[in-house]
Amino acid sequence: MARKGMMIPGQTKNVELCKGINGLDKVILREGRGCSAEVYLYGGQVTSWKNALGEELLFLSSKATFKPPMAIRGGIPLCFPQFRNHGSLEQHGFARNRFWVIDDDPPPFPSNSVSKAYVDLILKNSEGDGKIWPHRYEFRLRITLGPGGDLMLTSRIRNTNTDGKPFTFTFAFHNYFYVTDISEVRVEGLETLDYLDNLKNKERFTEQGDAITFEAEVDQVYLKTPTKIAILDHERKRTFELRKDGLPDAGVWNPWDKKAKMIPDLGDDEYKHMLCVQASCVENPITLKPGEEWRGRQEISAIPSSYCSGQLDPKKVLLRE
């Protein structure tokens, strides 16, 4: 196991491998302006993303358990090979419950970032996986903290079956955004789209509002979504911008008060400070033949906004290049 403060071979001073909660290995990414991100090898999961002011941008439950095999509540869990209960496996699949390793020799990742703050992780099938999902695979993940503080995650999943069989999966980056007050948050970019309502047995509806706002439990998967989605936190005067590629769908979830009380690793009132917007591929599952690879990518940024004073048109955020 890694010693505290040990540098990752082949990386730079921007990347540090150390011990986290309950002695679990984690990687800290740092950029010169003071931005940072933390990634646990358990789950390959980002658990913290801070801006240059040291403000936390991701929600992490105060009751999150860092005790395998329990999943970590918050940050950015990886849902593979199944998102939610869209299949026969356990909720959200098993990638978030596995120990990943640092990939010392990753293949080239296409990127226009000049950042030195990144880490490559890899997850391969184990004997235990074969009992519930009998396939061989390689799941490579690159997590990058950009020079401006943007957080980028790129997934590459390859079918390495030797029996000639294809496999099919669904996927999501299960982003937990930290918000000041969920009742003062709106999501732009999903209006007029069809969605599956998980609170109504996945029945299909069409979004009628000009934005998504929150006053009760929401658990929906929007279909054929644009590549950019904006989450506006009026209280904090902050806008999260989510850009994605290869992930046509977007889940939106907040448990609200009654459901929050039923979730053991979530504080009763913490639903007020979280919003999940998940870059996902759900409606049309991905099928890979042996040797084929799928890629999915997301980039999230947090920008100051004055929308609540009428000075920012949220539509312009979605058009920003």
Rank of each mutant, 00 (worst) to 15 (best):
I182A: 03
L190K: 06
V185K: 01
T227H: 10
K228C: 12
T213V: 14
T227L: 03
K224G: 07
L199V: 10
N175E: 04
I182V: 08
H174D: 01
K228E: 01
Y222H: 12
Q208H: 12
Y178V: 15
S183K: 13
L196G: 00
F205A: 05
Y222T: 11
K224N: 15
A216M: 04
Y195D: 03
K224R: 14
K224Q: 12
Y222W: 10
T180D: 09
A211D: 06
Y195K: 03
E188H: 09
L199H: 11
T225N: 06
I182M: 01
F177M: 07
Q220K: 15
A211P: 09
D181P: 04
I212P: 03
V218M: 02
Y176V: 03
N201A: 13
A216W: 05
E203Q: 13
V218I: 14
L190Y: 04
T225M: 05
N198W: 09
Y195P: 01
T213Y: 14
F214N: 03
R186P: 02
V179S: 07
E191A: 09
R186A: 10
A216S: 13
Q208D: 05
E215C: 10
L196C: 06
E191G: 01
L196P: 02
N201H: 12
H174C: 06
T180G: 08
L223E: 04
E215T: 09
Y222R: 09
E215R: 12
N198F: 15
K202F: 09
H174M: 04
L196T: 00
D194W: 12
L193T: 07
S183F: 06
I182P: 02
K224Y: 12
K202I: 10
E191L: 02
I212T: 08
Y178I: 14
T180F: 03
F173Q: 08
Q208K: 15
G209Q: 14
D219H: 15
V179D: 04
V187R: 10
R186C: 03
V179P: 04
S183N: 14
F177L: 14
V218T: 09
K224W: 11
G209S: 15
N201K: 15
T206H: 09
L196H: 07
D197K: 06
L199K: 15
R204W: 04
F177G: 03
G189H: 12
I212V: 15
E215P: 10
N201F: 13
V221W: 08
F177E: 08
I182G: 00
V218P: 01
D194F: 14
E207T: 11
E188Y: 12
T227Y: 03
H174P: 05
P226T: 15
K200G: 07
I182Y: 02
D194K: 10
T213P: 07
A216F: 02
V221S: 04
F177W: 06
R186Y: 13
V185G: 00
H174N: 05
F177Y: 11
Y176L: 03
V179I: 13
E188K: 07
N198P: 06
